[in-house]
Write a protein that binds this DNA or RNA. Structure first.
Lengths: 131, 131
DNA sequence: GTGGTTGCAAAGGCTTTGCAGGCAC
DNA sequence: GTGCCTGCAAAGCCTTTGCAACCAC
């Protein structure tokens, strides 16, 4: 029911999210959207992000207990979390076809989706630590 | 440096954690440990869990943005998160050997570990929804 | 005009932290 | 005895929410 109208605020949040590959959190989105709409509130950013998630236009990422991050690419795809700088990198990797295997091994459970999350070092941090 | 001494509190937290398969959060651990040590504080539970994680005796689980949950089984293994009741179920499933593939596809990144997290329904909820 | 949406600010949940006293070693 | 550990309470983040004004429809 919520968030049916196309307001300036909502349009701005979606555009900001689609214009980055950085998987930002609400605070970063807020900061960016304020460049266009200085009067927008953080509460509205949260409400809008929430609505976009419910509509399936945005995917929330939870990792490491910090702030929720948001990905405008809702196609299932693996991520690498950099343990040094916290960056989230999209991976060009075919997710393994493992749902069937899981269902066969545990017939009493219902498997719907899964996510593959790597931890390691992004390109910059891998280079920095190698030197 | 921290948490080198084997105190009553620390022993109790570890034993509670090892005595359950439910992947509890800090509040649940607190409640259980209080049955043995009524004077223990929630702060100590958090500090102890944190120390156990740093020592590699316990693995933290982040999912859905709620409270951090803790798993005394630190062997890498997949989980199923029940979207209905929130339960976390251990899966008896060989994780795919995908680290090499990831490294080949993205040579500039450093892959160290990964986690496979399913979402779906636990046995109880799958049965409840089927009826 | 009407009801969803917003800004503001307060509150909420989870977690961390400063401090003085206490306990394992 | 020494220094880490504890209980307590306050504070800290991140996020949600109540309310009156506002605006897209």
């Amino acid at each position: 029911m919520p968030m049916k109208r196309l307001t300036r605020q909502r349009r701005a949040v979606l555009e900001v999210l689609r214009g980055t590959k950085s998987h930002p959190d609400a605070a970063w989105v807020y900061q960016e959207v304020r460049k266009r709409i200085p009067s927008i509130s953080l509460g509205t950013v949260y409400r809008t992000l929430d609505a976009l998630v419910k509509e399936g236009l945005v995917m929330p990422l939870h990792h490491g207990g910090g702030a929720t991050r948001y990905d405008a690419n809702t196609m299932p795809h693996p991520h690498l979390y950099c343990r040094r700088c916290g960056a989230v990198v999209d991976l060009d990797l075919e997710p393994p076809d493992i749902l069937k295997e899981a269902s066969e091994r545990h017939p009493e459970l219902k498997f719907e989706t899964f996510q593959l999350e790597f931890e390691g070092l992004c390109a910059e941090c891998a280079g920095a630590l190698a030197s």
